[in-house]
Structure formats: structure tokens, C-alpha cells
Design a protein around this nucleic acid. Structure first.
Lengths: 208, 208
DNA sequence: AATTTTAGACCGACGGTCGGTCTATATTAA
DNA sequence: TTAATATAGACCGACCGTCGGTCTAAAATT
């Protein structure tokens, strides 16, 4: 049987289904045929919309990144918030569970999804760093922060946070996770030249 | 029971060839058949020695990690060196080009080798961190260093260094690379509570 | 003779291709 | 006005080459 649909409708249908399946089985273990069966389309249809399985992954990562960016931007451009709060909330906004993409972010961290993780790490670090840097510069100009290498520091902070916390790579138990988080926040304080515990005192109520 | 020296010879032969091929083509794009042809053996022989292609990768990563560890250990246990020099040399020893495994380390960083990179990152961070921590503690007990979270800091430092510098993920141009290195060293100074520029003044002559 | 090692034909699953069909909307001919 | 025809593009699924991995039998070693 043949069911015709609007181009973008079909495309999103494939994207949504693939995202769900990648979340459950992981990218590598999810077959193109799995997607076909779930969507209810034929091979040809799939390759009519995407030229490879990897292109689907890229499209999904773009979508997920976009969600993270929008959230971060919203925080960073909120005039009500001090730079300190902006930094914290932006970082928090990346961990907070959203309704839809939570499973996906979960799966991202399984060790067997190395490709998925690397692409997403790269995408998120690249896009979020400038947002954080702008906030840091705002803080510097207000005399709240002091930092010699804002851009590099934010990149380092994001990279290590995501790799160490969001990841199945290092399988941390809850206590280790707490210690890592503690150290990351302490490091952020050093990076921005604020007094010790400043961020931590605010952050700890959200995290643990 | 017969102990066949032949056995390990063959196994290493496969390992060496595979390492070379992974270095040239990357893990994913290197076929088991490529290895067979290069070694000059049949499928059956390959799978007599290794139960999967991935097991070969793991073995190679173990070998490469071992080389790094031995170098690091040698530095860390050298009584001639101050903790400051030990830290620096240990870190340097990871970047220094060795004769054989250089191509391999190069290839590690191509974006398409996500699995290879992740495994190696995990392996090296896990094994090198304790070595660095011991040096840091030595420095602390001598009153040279001051650090609240030595273990976490070293893990963060290694993770971000390897991911940002050793990687094809972020394709940095030479200038960006220099800035990143600069920030990493500055961060290390903060992590260990030494005065600014202390490490950098020593390090810069080795790096740039 | 028994055990270890080697060989390579073989397999099923996979990502991806291809020639072609179906249908809804123009376009034209009557 | 309507009926025949042409075009576009969404859709189909049989098919293909490649890959990692299996199997069984022969060869070499002890």
C-alpha cells in the first residue's frame, strides 16, 4: 500500500522515529531496516529523503543542539539575571531533563555510541562556548569576573564536563560524580576569578 | 602442555599489521580482509587468535597505553626531578612523537575514528591520572602545590587536553592550538595553586 | 595419534542502489 | 466543459556488494 505525505512531514516522521530508535538501541545497533519498519516505509523512501544513515544522525544532533542553544540563549539574554546566575543556569540548562530528548541524551552516553557522542560533543561545545563567553565578558566588564582566557576556559570546561559527566565512558558512581561536579565548579570559580565556593553555594542545591 | 613461542609471534604480527593499517585507513574503514591480506593469512587464522576485530583494537590500545604509562612512570619515579618538572615532563611525554606509534596516535584523532578515540581516551586518562595524582600529592606534602581536588583536577586536565588537542574533533589551527595550550597550562597552575606563569615559562620552550 | 594451527569457502546482516510505479496536479485537445 | 495526456515527485522493494564472523577439514607440530 502506498501512503503519500507532505515532504517535510515525512522527513520529520523519519527523524522522530530514528531519534526514538537511536535512543533505545543506540545508533550503531539500530538498522536502517529498523527505521523503515517503524515508520512503515520502504528502503527507497528512506534514501529518497536522506542519502545515508549518518545523515539522519547529523540531522538529529542538529535538532537536539538547537534545543540546547535556544535554552542557553534564553538564559544568557535575560536582563534580570546577573552574570553569575547566567553562567550557572546556562550550565544547568544543559543537564536538566527535557520531556522529549531525554532518552536521546541518555543514550548519547552509552559507550558503544562513540560516534553519536563525539558529534554531539563537538556540536554543543562549538555552539555553547560563544554564549558562555559573552556572559563572561559581560561579567568582566562589570568587574565581577576576571579571566585571562575566557574562550579557551569555557571550551575546556564544557568539554571536560560533558565527557566526564554525561558519558558512559568513565562509569562514575554517584559519589564520584558528586566529587567530579564539585571539582568542576571549583575550577569554574578559578577560571572566572571569583571567590571560592561562590558558584558552589548556589549550585549544590540544584544538583545533589 | 606445549608452550608455543610461535603463537605470540603470530599474534604480534597481526597486531603490528593491524596497528599500521588502522593508522593509515582508520579503524572503521580498515577491513578484516585488509589485515588478512597484509599479514598474508586466512580468515580462520585471524579468528583463531582474536575473537573479533574490536578485540584487536582493544589489544592495540592496551599496547599504546602501556608505552605511555611506562614513559610517565619513568618520569614520575625519577628522584632527580622536582614535582614541578615531573608534572611537566609527564604531560610532555604524552605528546612527544615516538617512532612507531606516532601514525597511530595521529589517526586516533580523525573524527571518523570515534570509537578508537574514546577507548584510548578512557584508557589513558584512567591509567595516567593516578600517576599524576601521586606527583601532585608529593608536591603538596613538600608545600609546593596546593590543591583541593587533585584526582578530579588531573582527570579534568587530561580529558580536556586530549580531547581538545589530540583530536580531529575541533580542527584547531596552529594559533588556536597555541591559545588552547596556553589556557590549559594556566589552568594547571590554578589547579595546583602555584604562581602564574610558573609552568608556562618552562613549558613554552618545549611546545611552540 | 593427538593436538594445535592454518586455510578459505561460506553465511547472514547490513547499508545503500536502482528501475520503475503510483497519484495528484497541470496542460492540452476535443 | 470535459476528457485525454503529460509532468513531477513521493514511494516501492528486489537487488547488490561488502563486511564481520563461522565452520569444517586439512596441514603441521608434538
Amino acid at each position: 500500500m502506498k501512503i503519500s505525505k507532505e515532504h517535510n512531514e515525512r522527513k520529520n516522521e523519519i527523524l522522530n522515529t530514528a531519534e526514538r530508535l537511536f535512543s533505545i538501541k543506540g545508533y550503531e545497533r539500530c538498522t536502517v531496516n529498523d527505521i523503515l519498519n517503524a515508520v512503515g516505509i520502504a528502503k527507497g523512501t528512506f534514501y529518497y529523503y536522506f542519502k545515508s544513515k549518518e545523515e539522519v544522525l547529523d540531522a538529529i544532533i542538529d535538532r537536539v543542539t538547537e534545543i540546547v542553544i535556544v535554552r542557553a540563549d534564553k538564559v544568557a539574554s535575560n536582563p534580570e539575571l546577573s552574570p553569575i546566575m547566567k553562567i550557572l543556569y546556562t550550565i544547568l540548562s544543559m543537564k536538566i531533563e527535557s520531556e522529549v530528548d531525554n532518552e536521546f541524551l541518555d543514550q548519547l552516553h552509552k559507550p558503544e555510541n562513540a560516534l553519536m557522542h563525539q558529534k554531539s560533543l563537538s556540536s554543543i561545545v562549538t555552539r555553547v562556548t560563544p554564549i558562555l563567553v559573552k556572559v563572561v565578558e559581560e561579567g568582566i566588564s562589570q568587574g565581577i569576573f576576571k579571566s585571562d582566557h575566557p574562550a579557551q576556559y569555557m571550551k575546556i570546561f564544557l568539554t571536560s564536563s560533558i565527557t566526564l559527566l554525561d558519558d558512559g565512558i568513565f562509569e562514575l558512581n554517584p559519589e564520584e560524580q558528586r566529587l567530579t561536579l564539585r571539582a568542576l565548579v571549583a575550577l569554574l570559580e578559578k577560571m572566572l576569578g571569583v571567590e571560592d565556593e561562590l558558584f558552589w553555594n548556589v549550585a549544590k542545591q540544584y544538583w545533589t
